[in-house]
C-alpha cells in the first residue's frame, strides 16, 4: 500500500482540466475545472489563473468562483470577455474542454460567507460582480436555506444578466430568498438607489452580513447607500472588479 500524496498547499500552482464550457450571456462563458480543492472552497473566494505562451511568457489574472462545494470535484468560473482582454480573450475564443489550465487557490479571507456567519444576508451585485455572490446563494440553498437572504442585482439588460434563470428560479422556489433585479439600460432603466436598498431591507430585516461586488463606481455608490440606510460599516464587505 502506498500512502496518497499529501495535498498541495493552496499557494501551489497546479494544472486543472476544463471539464465543461457553456455560454452564460453573449459575453460571459462558464468553465468547469477539475481541482483537488473543490470541497474546501469558501463562498466568495477566487483563484489565480496563469497562462503560459510557448516562449515562456506568462499572464496572470484572478477570477471569482461561482460554485459552492457540490461533490463534483470541480469549480465553476464565469469569465467575461473584456475588450482587448489578454486572458479573458483566451477564455472566450480558445479555451475548450480537455485543456489544462494552471491555477492556484482558493484565495481570499475577507469576502467570504458561510452558514456560521449567520444572517440575514444581503447581497448586492453589479454586472459580473454577481459571480462570488452566486457561490454564496448556492451554498445557502444547500446548507442553510433557513437564513433569510436578499439579492439586489444591477445589470444593463436582462440578456446580460448572469445566471438569470437560476436566480429567478431560486426567488420562486426558495422561501426566504428574494431577488431585486435592476436593469439600467432597458425597462424602467433604474440604477441602485435608496428605494432599492430600502425595499430589500424591508423584506429582510437588519442584515448581519452584507456583500457588495461589482465595478468601482457601482461598489462606491452601493456602499454609500448601505451606510446611509444605517448598516454598520463592519458588516459590509466589498470587492471591486476591473483595472
Amino acid at each position: 500500500m502506498t500512502e496518497p500524496p499529501p495535498p498541495l498547499p493552496w499557494t501551489a500552482w497546479r494544472e486543472a482540466t476544463i471539464t465543461a464550457v457553456a455560454p452564460i450571456t453573449p459575453r460571459v462563458k462558464s468553465f468547469r475545472l477539475a481541482v483537488d480543492f473543490a470541497d474546501s472552497v469558501r463562498a466568495g473566494q477566487h483563484v489565480d489563473v496563469r497562462l503560459t505562451a510557448e516562449d515562456g511568457y506568462q499572464a496572470q489574472r484572478s477570477y471569482s468562483i461561482a460554485s459552492a462545494p457540490d461533490g463534483s470535484g470541480t469549480i465553476e468560473l464565469m469569465i467575461e470577455a473584456l475588450p482587448g482582454g489578454e486572458v479573458s480573450g483566451f477564455f472566450a475564443e480558445v479555451a475548450a474542454v480537455g485543456d489544462a489550465i494552471e491555477l492556484r487557490g482558493p484565495i481570499g479571507g475577507a469576502f467570504v460567507w458561510g452558514p456560521e456567519d449567520g444572517g440575514p444576508l444581503l447581497l448586492v451585485g453589479g454586472g459580473s460582480g454577481i459571480v462570488p455572490l452566486l457561490a454564496m446563494l448556492r451554498l445557502r440553498a444547500r446548507v442553510a436555506p433557513e437564513i433569510p437572504c436578499r439579492l439586489i442585482y444591477a445589470v444593463r439588460t436582462r440578456a446580460e444578466a448572469i445566471a438569470l434563470a437560476e436566480l429567478e428560479a431560486r426567488a420562486r422556489d426558495e422561501p426566504g430568498f428574494g431577488l431585486s433585479l435592476l436593469t439600467t439600460r432597458e425597462g424602467a432603466a433604474r440604477r441602485i438607489d435608496a428605494d432599492a436598498v430600502a425595499g430589500a431591507l424591508a423584506g429582510l430585516g437588519d442584515p448581519a452580513r452584507v456583500f457588495v461586488c461589482g465595478s468601482n463606481p457601482f461598489v462606491a455608490a452601493a456602499s454609500e447607500l448601505l451606510l446611509a440606510a444605517g448598516i454598520a460599516p463592519a458588516r459590509i464587505r466589498t470587492e471591486r472588479f476591473g483595472g
Binding site: Q60, D99, A100, E102, G243
Partner: peptide, 30 residues
C-alpha cells in the same frame, strides 16, 4: 507547461522591464 493556443499580448520591452513577474500595466487606478 505552455497553455494550448495562448500567445499573449506582450507589452513593449520598455514596459516589460518595469513590470514585476505576473503583473500587467493599467492606466486606471483601481
Amino acid at each position: 507547461m505552455a497553455t494550448r493556443g495562448f500567445t499573449g499580448r506582450r507589452p513593449p520591452e520598455t514596459t516589460r522591464e518595469r513590470l514585476p513577474p505576473g503583473q500587467h500595466l493599467t492606466d486606471d487606478f483601481p
